[in-house]
């Protein structure tokens, strides 16, 4: 383990290393961002606002495959963390890039979905369902892209032998991105109630 990391890796005021505590704080704020959107979606849907029947037009297969991809990417990033705890830089590096690859597959499927929907005239301004659909999945996709970029930077750090703790931190973030999708999937693809 590298001992030359930033101060957030050494000190702890709450019994949790500062870097990890900061990651959890970030995720707590993300709960409001995505939770707020999901809450508004449910409020409008439960109040009978017209447009939500368009949920039947989304592709369950594409959504399910993307859920599988994200669940698998969560496995690979947690294996990257387990590997770096044993000091196995090479294995951890490989697992991180598997995760980035899974992120690319996720975005590819999302792009395919977006293209199909837009070509069929289902744009963000069509009705309230599509406004929520593009806002929620678009914001989620931005989080996926952000996570991939950070993972790539971290992978080169650990190959040089420092900042190992960041694998765990980006892992926690990535699992949260997966967790958000776990709720978006039934909401936008399955439950047309």
């Amino acid at each position: 383990m590298s001992m030359h990391g930033p101060i957030a890796t050494h000190r702890s005021a709450a019994g949790v290393p500062t870097g990890r505590l900061a990651t959890w704080w970030l995720l707590a704020s993300e709960i409001f961002i995505f939770g707020g959107l999901i809450a508004c979606f449910l409020l409008f849907k439960l109040s009978g606002t017209p447009g939500f029947e368009d949920a039947s037009l989304t592709s369950v297969t594409a959504g399910a495959v993307n859920t599988f991809v994200l669940l698998t990417s969560s496995l690979s990033i947690v294996l990257a963390h387990a590997a770096i705890e044993k000091g196995d830089q090479k294995k951890s590096f490989t697992y991180i890039w598997y995760t980035i690859g899974a992120g690319l597959v996720f975005l590819g499927i999302k792009t395919y979905e977006y293209t199909g929907k837009i070509l069929n005239g289902h744009t963000i301004t069509e009705n309230i369902f599509w406004s929520f659909y593009y806002t929620m999945t678009g914001l989620h996709a931005l989080h996926v892209i952000g996570g991939m970029v950070i993972m790539a930077l971290i992978s080169f750090d650990i190959r040089k032998g420092y900042n190992y703790q960041r694998v765990e931190l980006i892992g926690i973030y990535w699992h949260f991105v997966d967790l958000v999708w776990i709720f978006l999937f039934p909401l936008l693809y399955i439950a047309n109630f």
Partner: peptide, 27 residues
């Protein structure tokens, strides 16, 4: 399952669970 095992919440200090529960309550 993801939070407890992949995010290691079950090994984490309780303060983190409180933080997340507080966020959900405010939501």
């Amino acid at each position: 399952l993801v939070a407890a095992n992949f995010m290691h919440l079950k090994f984490e200090k309780q303060i983190i669970s409180f933080l997340l529960i507080l966020a959900l309550c405010l939501l």
